[in-house]
Nucleic acid binder design. Structure first.
Lengths: 385, 385
DNA sequence: AACGTGTTCGCAAACGTTGCCGATACATAA
DNA sequence: TTATGTATCGGCAACGTTTGCGAACACGTT
């Protein structure tokens, strides 16, 4: 039988039911209930022990605070002790535990970025720009992609919030209509900078390209090349990016006395699939357009592909202009005319903005929108002479 | 004057110099030195307080352990208390602190991925595949890019190590010749899976495409189309990917009794810049090649661009085959023949592998290499009839 | 009322690090 | 000597969470 953990007697011990699946005992002598502590299980492999600051301290017979000071150029330390500690750290292959550090400092030195997709060159380039700036400032960048899904986007924000990022850069999915998951960050005073895909509804810090100017220049260019019946295959109507490009399209038409025909304006969702369908529709119109201004390059490329299949000559029968200057635009056919956005600079600007906000600089206290210049790149798809 | 913190007397207290910039006092009675603790500074804004498990506990008058149990389906809890706690958590907008969680569990539910670049579609696609698998398994994916720089790659591994990722997927930069920063992970028993850019020297878990077969098929295809003087613009010689593609190139030539000419084999570094230089060199040869098998698509595209500038006809005067099936390959000229790799599946396979290793499944105890099939996509750049 | 059994909850020790403050040993100035 | 300043180091309480184990109850049975 079992011996009592108090008096050590065996005779007085009796079984007394179960607790959490384990046998409970009662010692009648001590009137004491107890369960048996689980056996040591020494054959199970000991969990790998990462060397900590305490290991170094014990090895050298100093306190862990001293070790901490040695590792962080704190003035209150003797150069000799410091050297000894650094050597020992090297010897034990010490790697600081960022988790513990972040926990006590309640700062992670990490900013998150959420992008909708990786299918075009646009977002990867933005990321490269942002990462460059943040790296120099000592911040890590955690990249997440929503795959144009609202649900994944929400899950991403949850994960970043749980991991206590110090800031967030975000370009939202085309599905997103509700912005509560972003407001959670503001509620916790975590700086957020929206770029490219922004909404006016959120009066926050933004970085965008000059979509209006770019669109205006693109459509003006089409008009100057003799196109008169110009369609626009746009983006989701809730995004500012779509609204601005549409506005540029409208104003350019109006400047030259052309009518804005509702049947020639369609809202897509940035994807090639939808673009193909809508392009089909446009070209099937009784009075089909002689040019199409597309909201982005994948859309424009779908249009070019479709035109080729229908044996429409580009640019003679159909002029096409895209937006973003994806690398493909340079190589497809005789080149795709497109509006080039400063992608890397957009990442840099957004990163610089979130940095300023995290540092609490006055300049960034109030919401600010930074607009980067866009540039029309003229290629073969729109020039007919 | 000041009262002594020990005896409480005022008379015996006198100023006794400064320590760390603060006034020090000496009580002659107690012979005790002391400084005044700094005032509460209540006018300074309290640091933003994230609601914690303790806040919920206090609000409801229960212990934090009870709250923790309520939030994790622990059996030892009354359904009513559980409901009350969950409601209160909702009300206080509680967000768990993943940092503290990871610290005590010494598990972060995060795996890192390091890729060399974002300029081609390849790595983004791999990431999408990996993220899909990991998401379903409850893991977060932290994406980092080295920009083909060894130094940044090392910094990335340091950051991931400090943040205690549970696993790592990596495709190394072309600069990397030293692998100690990766060995650090093995030393700490953190599973690492190498994909695409792997080296034989590291006898570890790998996921690669069948580079040999792909290269062989590509070169055989060129030969069958009448090309006889076929050059190879390869990758960095230390990477297995380069070695295998070169081996496929050699074996295909030998199968058809063609000589492997050293002057027609050049090692590049995957970048378009270097590719342009080496392509120039190849085409400047006295006996220039009539076809080039490029190690990747950007290289092949540089070759096509150069050929166009020199008014070489493709495929009549020069056959070109690339590797990876980048989207551009479909659109450039009459299409670029290329070897398609299952990018998303590579990400999925690597993720599944690292998952198995993290779970300690027997199947993955020993290093294993998974080889995915590659497929030759024949387009206009190599077919002359 | 005592006993036997199961349920529910609190206590406290981790996890690894930081930083305030006290303590000590000297060094130097009055 | 005495008063003051400097240089180093240790103790300890945080940071927010998980978890093993004991303790307090509640309830039904003798």
């Amino acid at each position: 039988m079992t011996t009592c953990v108090k008096c050590g007697k065996k005779e007085t011990v009796m079984k007394a039911g179960f607790v959490r699946g384990k046998q409970r005992f009662l010692c009648k002598n001590c009137d004491y209930y107890f369960t048996l502590p689980k056996p040591p299980e020494k054959n199970i492999r000991r969990k790998r022990h990462q060397t900590t600051i305490i290991d170094i301290a014990n090895e050298l017979g100093v306190s862990n605070s001293t070790v901490s000071r040695a590792l962080h150029n704190h003035p209150d330390i003797n150069p000799d002790t410091k050297k000894a500690i650094l050597d020992k750290a090297q010897e034990l292959d010490y790697q600081p535990n960022q988790l513990a550090h972040s926990l006590v400092k309640s700062r992670t030195n990490t900013v998150g970025i959420i992008v909708p997709e990786f299918l075009t060159q646009f977002f990867p380039n933005v990321i490269v720009g942002a990462q460059k700036v943040l790296r120099l400032a000592g911040y890590n960048l955690v990249i997440m992609q929503s795959g144009e899904s609202y649900d994944i986007e929400v899950a991403n924000t949850k994960a970043l919030l749980a991991n206590r990022v110090d800031g967030l850069l975000v370009s939202m999915s085309h599905e997103t209509n509700n912005y509560d998951h972003f407001r959670n960050f503001e509620k916790r005073e975590v700086p957020v900078v929206y770029f490219n895909r922004v909404v006016e509804e959120l009066g926050t810090h933004k970085v965008v390209a000059n979509d209006y100017q770019g669109a205006f220049a693109a459509v003006e260019h089409l008009i100057q090349n003799g196109y008169r019946r110009i369609a626009h295959l746009g983006g989701p109507p809730n995004l500012l990016i779509s609204q601005e490009r549409l506005r540029g399209y409208r104003d350019a038409l109006q400047k030259y006395g052309l009518l804005v025909l509702p049947e020639l304006v369609i809202h897509g969702d940035f994807t090639a699939q939808k673009a193909a369908i809508y392009a089909q529709y446009l070209l099937d119109l009784a009075e089909s357009p002689d040019a199409i201004f597309a909201v982005n390059d994948p859309t424009a490329i779908e249009i070019l592909t479709l035109a080729k299949a229908r044996e429409l000559r580009v640019p003679q029968d159909l002029g096409v202009v895209g937006f973003s200057d994806d690398p493909i635009a340079l190589y497809i056919g005789s080149g795709l005319t497109t509006v080039k956005q400063p992608t890397a600079r957009m990442g840099e600007a957004a990163a610089a903005m979130v940095l300023g906000m995290m540092r609490g600089e006055e300049e960034w206290l109030l919401p600010k929108t930074e607009v980067l210049q866009a540039e029309l790149i003229i290629r073969g798809s729109s020039v007919r002479k």
